[in-house]
Design a protein around this nucleic acid. Sequence first.
DNA 1: CATCTTTTGAGAGTTACTCTCATTTTCTAG
DNA 2: CTAGAAAATGAGAGTAACTCTCAAAAGATG
Lengths: 212, 212
Amino acid sequence: MSTSSPEHATDRLEDRLSRLPLRERKKLRTRRAIQDHALRLFGEQGYDETTVEQIAAAAEISPSTFFRYFPTKEDVVVTDEYDPIMAQIIRDQPPEVSAIEALRAMLREILPQLYADDLEALRTRMRLTATVPAVRGRTFESMRSTFDLMSEAIGERTGRAPDDPEVEAFSWAVLGVMQAAMNRLIEDKVTYEELPALLDHHLEFLGRGCPL
Amino acid sequence: MSTSSPEHATDRLEDRLSRLPLRERKKLRTRRAIQDHALRLFGEQGYDETTVEQIAAAAEISPSTFFRYFPTKEDVVVTDEYDPIMAQIIRDQPPEVSAIEALRAMLREILPQLYADDLEALRTRMRLTATVPAVRGRTFESMRSTFDLMSEAIGERTGRAPDDPEVEAFSWAVLGVMQAAMNRLIEDKVTYEELPALLDHHLEFLGRGCPL
DNA sequence: CATCTTTTGAGAGTTACTCTCATTTTCTAG
DNA sequence: CTAGAAAATGAGAGTAACTCTCAAAAGATG
């Protein structure tokens, strides 16, 4: 929103396909085909009951190709493309607001987008994350890369190094309270409609020093 | 320390062996044999290069038995017996101190114990957690059970339900800053001697609302 | 069209993990 | 002390995720 270039990080995901060379475009399409068919099959017959071979067959590729796109079967569930968008929104917040406020604003902006793009797939992914231990494990790896982007963005905003101890502590604490909120979603203690408010409350709670 | 019963949760791990029926004692010994040989082999030749078959041979059991003791190869690295001890120490803190203070006191008490018991094994486990993605993934599962025990103990102290949203947010935030500290250890940005102080500082930082 | 690069498919091999069933080892009663 | 129940172990067969290698196909480039 603050740049004049047409390829901005907050463009809807769909809008980016057309601007790529043919080869890249095909790769992206293959990637999505794999992910879509995989999630559909997982939904229909369960995660463990679906083999990579079946996914490959449904997406009309070979098993070898599957592993070129996703290093593990779990990655199909865990991977998404929102992290860089999040980081960009954090950077775009006015410099005078606190780190926590910047994050709250970011969530207010990105959650509606996330819901609009993808709600059904999101639901499946959440359900799988809740029920399949292997997938749950991989979630952590994805938290680590979210962490990297987040501490980068926070460091930039606060004029500190991304590996400043307090920046790291802050970032992990934020990921922690987000995890807490996600978990309540997964355990059906809160609905998708209520999630944004819960996240917001947790961040505010964190900013008050978690008084108990 | 506050109870007269001889089997107290804070007894050194060694002291508990003798009080068990024969069968249990043997199981515990097998379990440790597996873990010791596995960690030694991992250290000598690497994690991926060590097969379950080799571990079983070294511990003089069959591969089938290995999986009866550890559901996955990763669990050998991740599993330890300290969580219930931690929970007990939290409960033992005087009720007037805040949750954060109780945690800081707990760490001051348990870290020396941890270091004294196990430092070499601890180092190997940390190194593996740092370098082997599969192990890193499992760490998350173990954080989940730490979370359960922690929110239980915190809930009890604060007269709230263990699934109170703020208790959950608090517990995950604490696990977050702990993760931040561990990571610095793993990345050699901090030594084992400095870790307790860093953890303490992070908890205090959390209690101040992570101002940035 | 020709060639150079990148992507794909096929197939063989390894190993973590599961299941089943027979055998051995520990616990418990009479 | 012994008989029988209960629990732990071993052996072996089977599955499926992942790896590696190499040859064929498709896309970029001049």
